[in-house]
C-alpha cells in the first residue's frame, strides 16, 4: 500500500507538502460538520475542503504528473474550476431549501417571510 512514483527530491517534497496540507484543510472542514451547532453554521465548514483543500490537492497532483511526464499537464485545473463553480450553487440551493423548511415549520430563529418570498421561490 505504501508506494509513490519516483519523483526527483524537490518535486517529491513539494507534492507531499501540497497533498498533506490539502488533506488537513479538508479534514478540518469536515470536522466542522461535527463541531458546529446549527445547520446554518454547519453549511460553512465544508467550503474549506472545496476551496483551499481542493486547490492544494489539485496543485499537488498537477505538479506530480507534470514532472512524471516532463510536460505541463494542466487538465486537473478543470476539477478545480468545476468544484469552485458548482459548490456555491449546491450550497445556496441547500440553504434555501433549509430556510424554506424552517419557515413552513414556523421556527422562530430564522428570518421572517417577506411578501416577495413566495414569488422568489417560484422563480427557481
Amino acid at each position: 500500500m505504501i508506494q509513490a512514483p519516483d519523483l526527483p527530491a524537490w518535486a517529491a517534497f513539494i507534492v507531499a507538502f501540497l497533498i498533506v496540507t490539502g488533506a488537513a484543510i479538508t479534514l478540518i472542514g469536515s470536522f466542522g460538520l461535527l463541531r458546529l451547532g446549527s445547520f446554518y453554521e454547519r453549511v460553512h465548514s465544508p467550503t474549506l475542503g472545496t476551496t483551499l483543500g481542493t486547490a492544494f490537492i489539485v496543485l499537488g497532483s498537477m505538479t506530480c504528473f507534470s514532472v512524471l511526464q516532463s510536460r505541463p499537464l494542466v487538465h486537473e485545473l478543470l476539477i478545480l474550476a468545476f468544484v469552485t463553480i458548482t459548490t456555491p450553487v449546491t450550497l445556496m440551493l441547500l440553504a434555501r431549501a433549509a430556510l424554506y423548511r424552517d419557515r413552513t415549520e414556523g421556527r422562530e430563529d430564522v428570518p421572517l417571510i417577506d411578501e416577495n418570498d413566495e414569488q422568489a421561490l417560484a422563480e427557481i
Partner: peptide
C-alpha cells in the same frame, strides 16, 4: 458562498 464563513441564502429582486 465560495468564501468560507459567509453564505448567500436569498436574493429578493423586488
Amino acid at each position: 458562498t465560495a468564501t468560507p464563513g459567509t453564505m448567500w441564502v436569498q436574493f429578493d429582486r423586488k
